[in-house]
Design a protein around this nucleic acid. Sequence first.
DNA 1: AAACTCCACAACCGCGATCCA
DNA 2: CTGGATCGCGGTTGTGGAGTT
Length: 376
Amino acid sequence: MGRAPCCDKVGLKKGPWTPEEDQKLLAYIEENGHGSWRALPAKAGLQRCGKSCRLRWTNYLRPDIKRGKFTVQEEQTIIQLHALLGNRWSAIATHLPKRTDNEIKNYWNTHLKKRLAKMGIDPVSHKPKNTTLLSIDGQSKSVANLSHMAQWESARLEAEARLVKQSRLQCTSQNTKQVGSLDQPSTVSDKLFPPVSGAPTSCLDILKALNRVWSSKAGNGNGSGDLESSPTSTLSTTGGVVESSTNLFEFVSGKSSRSCDDGTTGEECDEEWEFKAKDHMVNSTPRFNGINMSSIDNNNNNNEHISRGNFLENFTDLLLSNSGTSNHRNVQADGESNIGLAPSGDNNSYYEENNKNYWNNILNLVNSSLQDPPLF
DNA sequence: AAACTCCACAACCGCGATCCA
DNA sequence: CTGGATCGCGGTTGTGGAGTT
């Protein structure tokens, strides 16, 4: 048997939407909201199934969708989040305002995946394709540990994405009146689905609140027994260093601004992706989304134990694709990475500090994508 | 200019999760 | 608690346009 199709009625139209259908759907939702998607097509006079209407609305007609080419910043964010979250497109989409999960997914499959593969990076694992050598070197255990840690971080970030999503929904309803006074026309759709442009900043409160929690905990040294410490404390027993593929290349913002003045991305900007061997990165300046991360670096460099390298920090680096000194801490002068070294010292304060940085970096990530003017 | 191939993206499909009576 | 209805997500496919021969 199997599941019944969502549209059991024969004669329902499929395939590309016509402008007339779009207009009908848009007009109906602006007037009445979508309500039950199943009932919508009949009410709106459309020969479509509700699911098709919902997809058309969420992926194309929604007023808060930004269309057009992805910026280098957006590409960077997608790769970083994909390294953490894998194919969890909806979670990734929560960090890319005005982009739909479907759009991100398509862009990944058609552009980014190929580009990473071209650079010798496995787009699934985000590792260089020759990582099997690590196993030969007897480091497979560390790699396995890192994989386990990655799952923790991934789960945490995914949960965070959900919170952001919920928060955004709340803020959307709270800000309805304010948004209506923006430069956008005050249509019913604005009231029902206001543009996200203004909302996310205020909706970052949840991230900021979490960040404050970590800051305060790092300050008073009391960070035990909380939700977040569980995964990280698990990590503490088997420190290791991931040689994230994202550590192996960087986006050089300065170069981007020169070659992408017209805002072009994608193939036109392939040359912006500088592939750099690790041992060539020692003197590079850490940059992310135009933010100089040296303050964070300096902070970390004050902690001797961090220089031993540990997974969480590298994962933060991974998230940020911060190809600066943080990566180099894990690379000895002879190019060997010190995989397998556990952090020493006070583990609690150590991980609190890293979590503080972690949330700072997340905030930077989200804030910069929302507030910074385009770099090119 | 026609035929063919490639590519990007919109749309569909099926499954799991959630909601609700 | 249960089961149907609905929603959301991720994988996949189909279509149309651009590029090539």
